[in-house]
Write a protein that binds this DNA or RNA. Structure first.
Lengths: 162, 162
DNA sequence: TTGCATGCAAACGGTTTGCAAAACC
DNA sequence: GGTTTTGCAAACCGTTTGCATGCAA
């Protein structure tokens, strides 16, 4: 097995995110009645920075500690929870290991994850997106999150094991 | 919040599974070179029984203990892991709480889960199924598992909070 | 009779929580 | 000044593992 250490997955982006300004990060907080603190801005900045946009709590903590070494897991997790509550980020529960978090973009996108090396590739698909919306609408549910995960063995890992 | 205790989610089936015979349960084991034991047959029987087909390790243990009170978590988890390895069951990682497991059926189906009460409703969609297959094929990946989860607030929970 | 499977308890790893001090508005 | 938020450490909970015993083949 060619398993990467958990929480250090590499992924390939279909396209880079547009970087949000500091002001729009602050807006996210204000809109929800959350206080603006250095810690929260730092966490948002990390979530909003590439090249990898799916980050585990550990990833976030590691990056944030470079600026503020005192920041701890409790703060990260508590804030992530609020961000989920207010729908600013999505949580991606991996089959194994820690969950990943990412800022919501306007366009839905989905994930292909290799069960061996944990590499994540994103894809978009309007057909799937509208189909899922229709299904939820029919049932009179209120959509919170669409998760489409395809678990595969990627080409590289297939070659290694054969 | 109207949160059910974890591991006790209710779900609505689109249609009942066809019950597998004891012999076909044994076949599952034989095919994979796994030894046939009372414990494993009991666990398979539970996985193959309704009315709810998505079960947590705890659910399985509770049911299995009615027959064999000595059976423990270790046995359940170790066996579930093998069943996943040999692709006889799927693991559904919930956003919160324990994972659910279910025997794979021939037809892919997907889940709508309420983030508040954890109720799961299944749905099928040929369009999504074939689209996902096509996407994986294009990338020359080897499909292991399709997971489509829609997280919603269900009608009942929406009413309660309004 | 040999190696795989089990049961127990202890360890593990990711996440959450209680509490006192600090920061925000 | 009153309320939120933070940092620390301890608790938590689902899952995994080590080891001695039991059982299927």
């Amino acid at each position: 097995m060619n398993q990467l250490p958990l929480g250090s997955q590499k992924d390939i982006l279909i396209e880079p995110r547009k970087a949000l300004t500091e002001d729009s990060l602050k807006d996210i907080l204000r809109k929800s009645g959350l206080k603006i603190t250095k810690q929260r801005l730092a966490i948002l900045k990390v979530l909003n920075s590439g090249p990898r946009y799916h980050k585990t709590a550990q990833d976030i903590l590691d990056e944030v500690k470079k600026i503020n070494p005192n920041l701890g897991f409790a703060t990260v997790y508590r804030f992530l929870k609020k961000l989920i509550q207010f729908q600013f980020i999505s949580k991606i529960s991996m089959e194994a290991g820690s969950a990943c978090y990412e800022l919501k973009s306007n366009e839905s996108h989905y994930h292909i994850a290799c069960i061996n090396c944990s590499k994540i590739v994103e894809f978009k698909n309007k057909l799937i997106e509208s189909t899922l919306q229709k299904i939820v609408l029919e049932k009179k549910y209120k959509l919170q999150n669409q998760i489409v995960e395809i678990y595969v063995t990627c080409d590289q890992c297939s070659q290694l094991s054969s």
